[in-house]
């Protein structure tokens, strides 16, 4: 044996260790940290609710829900949220019509047709696309897409729904593509072999076997993307204008819920005014919309995971 005894050294150190105390404290501290996320949710709910209630003591909730006109800055303000919802809806619908086929097509290509090499090149590019700040997309919509559209179609206004809608679509394409591809890749290979072994073409296999098997994962990705489009702020603030209206014309200026919040916060409203509190009523509406979408998306993706 050597000149020292490690077990003896260990038992000598033991007395000085405060490890038992640390072991007891760590889970408590970590639990407290974990609760910050819960407090954040509570904070959001309390903030939105309390200020929204103040808003509804000044403005009738019936007007809020039934009027179709929103003019917060006029001398005779109108508070019909429908005008803002309509703006959000127009942008979202254009984005989804553009992004769903493109995103799904890309997902099908990447999951079922592309070689490993192609996939290794394309996926990081999609990630870069997903990481571009929305203020940059806004600039792109205003200075590139809008002039392009106006060149093709002279009736397009400088501020319109089409250009930001398409760009919001570009923004959500990576989300649909990568989440749907995950869902399709998760379909077991045995199902592919089964379909191809019976003489289906790859296309028939995709539509008759892969898509039905991955459907809840794909739907979940689309719902999440819709939620993202609803909450998107900078693109619409920059390129959609600031005139709330309930029309379905996609060529003229409009305002979304998020766009209104930014306009007010950019300095047009002082604390305590009706307009200030309307910020929270609009925020609450937005929050409810996206929350419903997220819950649906989670339900769908849980359902998807149960299948395998």
């Amino acid at each position: 044996m050597s000149e020292y005894n490690i077990q003896k050294m260990i038992s000598e150190k033991k007395g000085r260790r405060s490890s038992a105390f640390i072991e007891k404290m760590v889970p408590i501290i970590l639990l407290l940290i974990t609760l910050v996320s819960v407090l954040t949710t509570i904070g959001i709910l309390v903030t939105l609710l309390s200020e929204t209630i103040v808003f509804f003591t000044r403005v009738s909730p019936i007007e809020f829900l039934t009027s179709t006109e929103w003019s917060a800055f006029s001398s005779d303000p109108q508070w019909g949220i429908f005008a803002l919802i309509m703006g959000t809806l127009k942008i979202t619908v254009i984005a989804v019509i553009f992004a769903v086929p493109v995103g799904l097509g890309a997902a099908i290509y990447l999951s079922e047709y592309a070689s490993d090499r192609v996939r290794r090149i394309i996926k990081p590019i999609l990630e870069i696309l997903a990481g571009i700040p929305t203020v940059v997309y806004g600039f792109f919509a205003l200075t590139f897409v809008t002039p392009l559209l106006r060149g093709i179609w002279s009736e397009v206004n400088l501020f319109n729904a089409l250009s930001p809608g398409l760009v919001v679509g570009v923004m959500i394409i990576p989300m649909i593509a990568s989440l749907s591809e995950d869902a399709m890749s998760a379909v077991p290979n045995t199902m592919r072999e089964g379909a191809l072994g019976l003489g289906s073409t790859r296309l028939e296999m995709v539509f008759k076997v892969i898509l039905p098997a991955a459907i809840s994962g794909i739907l979940s990705s689309i719902v999440l993307a819709v939620s993202r489009a609803i909450g998107e702020t900078m693109i619409v603030s920059i390129a959609a204008g600031s005139t709330p209206n309930a029309s379905i014309n996609i060529l003229e200026s409009l305002q979304t819920m998020t766009g209104f919040i930014v306009q007010v916060a950019s300095g047009d409203a002082t604390y305590g005014t009706d307009t200030y509190f309307s910020l929270y009523a609009v925020g609450m509406t937005l929050f409810v919309f996206t929350l419903i979408m997220n819950v649906v998306a989670q339900w769908l993706s849980r359902k998807f995971r149960e299948e395998y």
Binding site: S37, T40, T41, G43, I44, T47, L48, L224, S227, R228, I230, G231, E232, T233, T258, I261, V262, A265, L279, Y280, G283, L286, F287, T290, L291, M293, N294, V295, A297, Q298
Partner: peptide, 15 residues
């Protein structure tokens, strides 16, 4: 936590 991930950034701004 997964719900928080889907809350729009403007709402975090209001918070």
């Amino acid at each position: 936590i997964s719900n928080l991930a889907g809350v729009p950034s403007v709402v975090f701004g209001l918070l």
